[in-house]
């Protein structure tokens, strides 16, 4: 009994050691990817901004606490100028990072949870279930997702009701998160499934099956750890497209005017006529942030994909 337990423990430790060594070698290989490193550094900076906006620019300026005048151009007092309510654009943009990144993160989580679960089940189960799930994912792949998102968002808002708060997030934003999730899980599911299909035939899975491990245990214990790489690379790319979708949906007017994400700031800029008034400082900071974040996520995602995804050396 105890000998067996000790053996398992040492086996587990050994496996951890191998994994740790793998991580170290991966880290050093990643560090050699200059584009990936630049992306990573910028993203970490944005992450810090999103986590502690108050540290950098103080509390979010509201209508009554606005420190500037309407459309103040950039000056020493307001480095990025002020918006139509006189709110400091630097303050707004930094706080916008928190909302945009939160939405991106949650949408990514939803996408991955659904995509990975369906990919694992579909790939492992095979047969009719696989067939059915893949038909459904085909359907979602073909659907013009953005148009669907456009239509789903108001419908869901009507169904949920806007005064509901889910996990402390207002329903309008939650709906955007869910909509992004619904419309983007299929691609993840496809990628995971194909990897599971090839893993299923590998020796160690067969071995586990022979010693009597159930499907749940095989999936969680043997297959999932081997697709984690793929999930990570996919997550980063999903994050980029989630930020993009959120920005676009908010810009179109489906966002929440009381929680300024970057897309929402751009929406107010458009509504207040900033482009025609030449008030470029209301547009440039949030737009630059969106582009920078999406670009960096793409850089990191591509780097990870190249290093982690066994199938693709050069994607994109």
């Amino acid at each position: 009994m105890s000998a067996v337990a000790a053996g398992t423990a040492s086996l587990r430790a050994q496996r951890w050691r191998i994994r740790l060594a793998g991580m170290r070698s991966f880290a050093s290989r990643y560090a050699r990817r200059a584009d990936g490193m630049v992306g990573l550094i910028v993203l970490v900076l944005f992450g810090v901004l999103a986590l502690f906006p108050e540290l950098f620019v103080g509390p979010l300026e509201t209508a009554t606490t606005a420190t500037g005048n309407a459309f103040d151009p950039p000056s020493a007092a307001h480095v990025f100028g002020a918006d139509d309510l006189g709110r400091d654009m630097l303050n707004l943009t930094v706080h916008g990072a928190r909302i945009s990144m939160t939405i991106g993160l949650m949408a990514t989580v939803i996408t991955l949870v659904f995509g990975v679960a369906i990919g694992l089940i579909s790939g492992y189960a095979g047969g009719k279930l696989d067939n059915a799930l893949m038909r459904i994912s085909d359907f979602f792949l073909v659907l013009p997702t953005f148009v669907l998102a456009l239509i789903l968002a108001p419908v869901l808002i009507d169904i949920v009701g806007v005064d509901v708060q889910i996990l402390g997030i207002r329903a309008t934003l939650m709906v955007i998160i869910v909509v992004i999730g619904i419309t983007s899980w299929a691609a993840t599911a496809r990628i995971i499934r194909s990897q599971v299909l090839s893993l299923k035939e590998r020796m160690f899975v067969d071995r586990a099956r022979v010693i009597g491990a159930g499907p749940g245990r095989i999936i969680m214990g043997h297959i999932l750890p081997n697709v984690v790489n793929l999930i990570v690379a996919n997550a980063v790319l999903t994050f980029a497209s989630a930020v993009l979708t959120e920005t676009t949906l908010s810009f179109i007017g489906l966002g929440d005017p009381f929680q300024p994400s970057w897309g929402q700031i751009l929406n107010s800029a458009q509504e207040s006529g900033a482009p025609g008034l030449g008030a470029w400082w209301v547009i440039a900071p949030p737009a630059a942030c969106v582009v920078l974040v999406v670009l960096c996520f793409t850089l990191v995602g591509n780097a990870l994909d190249d290093l982690l995804n066994p199938k693709s050396q050069v994607r994109r």
């Binding site: 980029a240 993009l244 920005t247 676009t248 810009f251 751009l266 920078l292 670009l295």
Partner: peptide, 8 residues
Amino acid sequence: LYSMPYFV
């Protein structure tokens, strides 16, 4: 360009 929403 790929990282820019069309409206940007």
